[in-house]
């Protein structure tokens, strides 16, 4: 089978070409760059909402993009169980569109922060983590001004296994020092109840080639390889 993925380009997306590069050239999966109002869900097996500043994020991160026609198309995909990932601004869009629970608030430092962090894998059953090992630690960069995860229903999230990643130190301990933005309970990424949709603030596409990693890791690939695995399992 040929898997076809859509990378949705909103006005102001700026990690769209990076994501295209990694999916097409590094992972080797057919991915198309689709302008937000031209997206037709029926043509694709999954979609990626890349990072950036959709519509400038002038009002509130992700809120305007959440009302794009692309999101209504993606909602069909979501209900149908196909995989959807939101990275950084994509995560903000998915929470605003209520594909995912919670909200992303301004960093507690009040400043944009760009650096490599460690995240601990909390749930390996999702469409984007099935190739990961529970409690393993991934090296991956963040770059955001509004990445402080917040939810009023933390217990419910935990009970439903919706916390997918937490910021941790190198040995996987969840500490205050390893929390780069003040996220509730160090949460870096979450999924929907059905686990086919994942959103996270860190950038897997920036962590998929050893040349870009300060320590030579390629942990970002696991997200996309998991997606392929998930699509293959669904079809068979």
């Amino acid at each position: 089978m040929t898997i076809k993925i859509a990378c949705i380009q909103f006005p102001g997306s700026n990690c769209d070409l990076d994501t295209m590069h990694v999916l097409n050239n590094v992972i080797g999966i057919e991915t198309h760059l689709i302008w937000h109002n031209q997206f037709k869900e029926s043509e694709f097996d999954g979609c990626v909402l890349p990072g950036g500043f959709s519509f400038g994020d002038y009002l509130r991160s992700g809120i305007i993009a959440a009302h794009s026609p692309a999101i209504e198309e993606a909602r069909v995909m979501l209900k149908d169980g196909r995989p959807i990932i939101g990275i950084c601004n994509g995560f903000q869009i998915l929470t605003e569109a209520q594909f995912l629970p919670g909200a992303l608030l301004g960093n507690d430092s009040l400043k944009f922060v760009c650096k490599w962090v460690n995240i601990k894998v909390e749930n390996t059953n999702t469409a984007f983590t099935n190739k990961m090992i529970t409690s393993s630690v991934l090296k991956i960069p963040i770059a955001h001004g509004e990445g402080r995860y917040f939810s009023e229903n933390l217990k419910e999230l935990e009970d439903n296994d919706q916390v997918v990643f937490r910021y941790s130190n190198e040995s996987g301990e969840i500490t205050n020092e390893s929390n780069p933005n003040g996220s509730l309970d160090n949460i870096a990424g979450v999924c929907n109840l059905e686990q086919n949709c994942v959103g996270l603030m860190p950038h897997p596409e920036r962590a998929s080639e050893s040349i870009l990693s300060p320590t030579g890791t390629t942990h970002g690939r696991l997200f996309f390889e998991s997606m392929i695995e998930f699509i293959k399992r669904r079809v068979s």
């Binding site: 990076d18 590069h21 944009f112 760009c114 490599w116 770059a143 040349i211 870009l212 300060p214």
Partner: peptide
């Protein structure tokens, strides 16, 4: 200063800020 700048977007930045004498970008 440089923590506030996204110095990695574009997936070209090979040497990170503070680790080299100059910024270094790959040409994919």
């Amino acid at each position: 200063v440089y923590r506030q700048y996204d110095h990695e977007v574009g997936v070209r930045s090979v040497v990170k800020c503070g680790e080299g004498d100059s910024g270094l970008l790959r040409i994919i």
